[in-house]
Structures are given as structure tokens and as C-alpha cells.
């Protein structure tokens, strides 16, 4: 098996101001499915094509934003090995083992804070529910879909200060690869890094900002441009707070639309991109072309898109 170590984004835990309103948004507008609730009242959700019990967790809180982001690794042995490597790296802080079951139907997890202040964790085991089409002679999509109906939670973009240290952590310790970068004048420093643990254009991205531990967006993948346009119709039909789109990114080539959940956390649904292989050179975007890098059609920056975070 060529894809080992950290396999993929496993879950994102989001803070919301009103739980019922958030559940309506994530189930009816985005079209995830509620799979459980825990004693603390947190709500667990998954997309139709996901095998595991949950990929999104919602927690009612006094402020919006992200509690933590979880990565699934390929085995319990890898989990132990990576925990040792993370501790030894000196790049993470506040490390902790969370016991099995502390997160609903999830095995033990190793938690840590990355240089930009975001809380992350790795785990190897989670109860599986199976995708909604099953795995024997499956249909291409199940009945009973609603809303935008993404097939999976795909990635997040996070803002913070020391993205150089994040790059070292994810590339040299966790085995990610840099797919694309945004560089400042004369390539002197990094403005943004796009990283994959698999062969996607990105599984996580970081933008250099003057404040740590900020969430820019949580993203879900759709089947194509037409589905992105359909999502745009749903956004207007249901009077959802639109950020920007439909449009295309230069970075990652994604076809995209951005909107906000009822607590102000930004969501994206997107399609496209490319398959990344380890022999593919890193794509570099220069600050002089940042408009087309971010929005390939408009070719200009959007203040709200750049600066609104939770």
C-alpha cells in the first residue's frame, strides 16, 4: 500500500452559537446526515459516501470557530509511532492521550496544539456505518439525498502566524507534502501553504495571519461544476449567508462557492482540482498574481473573503 501514515482528514469539531439552527444548516442545506449525539449534547454527522461514523461534530458554545481537527492514521501502531515523533519534534504543545470512547464511537486519540495555535489530533479507529450505497454492486449515489449533498468532508483552511513551523511539522513529522505555496516579494517568505497527506491538491491549508487559531473554512466535496451551481441555487433559495461564488480558484483549480453557517463559520462546497503524485513539482503563486490565484475569474481580492474568520 503506497498511501500510509496519516490517511486523510477524519473529523472537524465546530463551535456553533445555536445547536438546533446549526443542525438544520448542516443536515438540510449542506445535506449531511446526523449519526449520533453524546452526553455533552454534541451532534455527530457524516456525508453519504463516508464509511466512518462521523466527519463533522457540532458543539454549542459561546463563540464560533473550530475546537479541533482530527486526522485518521492507518493503524494503532502508526498512532503510537506518530505520537512519539510529535512529542520529540518540539513543534507541538499541550499533548494528551484521550481515551477510547471520550469521543463518541472513536478509539484513543493523541491530541496536540500546532504552532499556529490550532488543536489537532490523530486516531486510528472509529466505528463504521458504511456509505449509503453499500459496497456490494453499489449504485453511484443513494436515494434520499437532500441539500447540496457532498460526498465527504474534504479539508479546512486555517489562519495563524507561524505557518513556517506548521509546514515543518506537517511535512517532516507527519509526512504530508507541499502541493502549492503563495510567496511574498522575491520569494522571501510564505503567505500560504497547501498540504496533502494523500494525492489531493490539499487536505489542509494555512494562511499567514496576525492572529492564531482562526478558522477560515471547512470544505465539502461535490461531484462537479453543475453541483456547485445547484448549491448556489440552494443558498439563495434558503436565504443562506453567501460569501462568494460560484467561481474557480487558481490555487488547486477548484470550482467553488463559499457561504456561512448560521454561527458565522465559513463553509465551502467545491469540485475539481487535480490528482497529486509525489513526483509533481510544487506550484508557486507570487503575491503579484494573488488575485487570479484566489479567484481565477474575478482576478481580484475580496476583503471579506480574506479577512472574515471565526
Amino acid at each position: 500500500m503506497a498511501l500510509t501514515g496519516v490517511l486523510r482528514p477524519g473529523h472537524i469539531v465546530l463551535r456553533v452559537l445555536d445547536l438546533d439552527e446549526a443542525v438544520r444548516h448542516y443536515t438540510q442545506v449542506i445535506g449531511l446526515f446526523e449519526t449520533g449525539r453524546d452526553d455533552e449534547g454534541r451532534v455527530f454527522l457524516k456525508a453519504w459516501d463516508e464509511n466512518d461514523h462521523h466527519s463533522v461534530v457540532l458543539r454549542e458554545a459561546e463563540q464560533a470557530g473550530m475546537d479541533y481537527f482530527g486526522w485518521k492514521v492507518d493503524s494503532e501502531q502508526t498512532l503510537d509511532d506518530l505520537a512519539v515523533k510529535l512529542e520529540a519534534s518540539g513543534l507541538v504543545s499541550d499533548t494528551r492521550w484521550a481515551p477510547e470512547g471520550e469521543q463518541l464511537l472513536t478509539g484513543r486519540r493523541f491530541q496536540f496544539t500546532i504552532p499556529t495555535g490550532h488543536r489537532m489530533e490523530i486516531y486510528a479507529t472509529k466505528k463504521t456505518l458504511g456509505c449509503m450505497t453499500g459496497y456490494d454492486n453499489p449504485d453511484p449515489w443513494p436515494d434520499g439525498l437532500r441539500g447540496m449533498a457532498p460526498s465527504r468532508f474534504d479539508h479546512a483552511l486555517l489562519y495563524g502566524r507561524d505557518i513556517d513551523a506548521n509546514l515543518t511539522l506537517f511535512r517532516d513529522v507527519l509526512g504530508f507534502n507541499l502541493t502549492e505555496q503563495v510567496v511574498g516579494p522575491d520569494r522571501k517568505f510564505l503567505i500560504g501553504v497547501f498540504l496533502t497527506c494523500s494525492n489531493k491538491a490539499h487536505d489542509i491549508a494555512f494562511i499567514r495571519s496576525d492572529e492564531d487559531n482562526r478558522l477560515h473554512h471547512a470544505s465539502f466535496i461535490l461531484g462537479g461544476w453543475h453541483e456547485v451551481l445547484h448549491a448556489a441555487d440552494i443558498i439563495s433559495k434558503r436565504d443562506v449567508s453567501l460569501d462568494i461564488g460560484p467561481t474557480r480558484h487558481g490555487i488547486t483549480r477548484g470550482e467553488t462557492i463559499y457561504f456561512f453557517d448560521p454561527s458565522g463559520n465559513r463553509n465551502e462546497v467545491f469540485s475539481g482540482g487535480y490528482i497529486w503524485y509525489p513526483d509533481r513539482p510544487v506550484i508557486t503563486w507570487h503575491d503579484t498574481e494573488i488575485g487570479r490565484a484566489i479567484f481565477y475569474h474575478d482576478r481580484k481580492l475580496n476583503e471579506a473573503f480574506l479577512n472574515v474568520t471565526t
Binding site: F189, R208, D287, T309
Partner: peptide, 14 residues
Amino acid sequence: GMRKCIMKHAPHHD
């Protein structure tokens, strides 16, 4: 206000 938070200048340690 729309506080500009993206850092388009070199970080301090550089």
C-alpha cells in the same frame, strides 16, 4: 471594520 489580517510582509524572525 474589515481588519486586514493576512500578513503580506515578512514575519519578524526573517
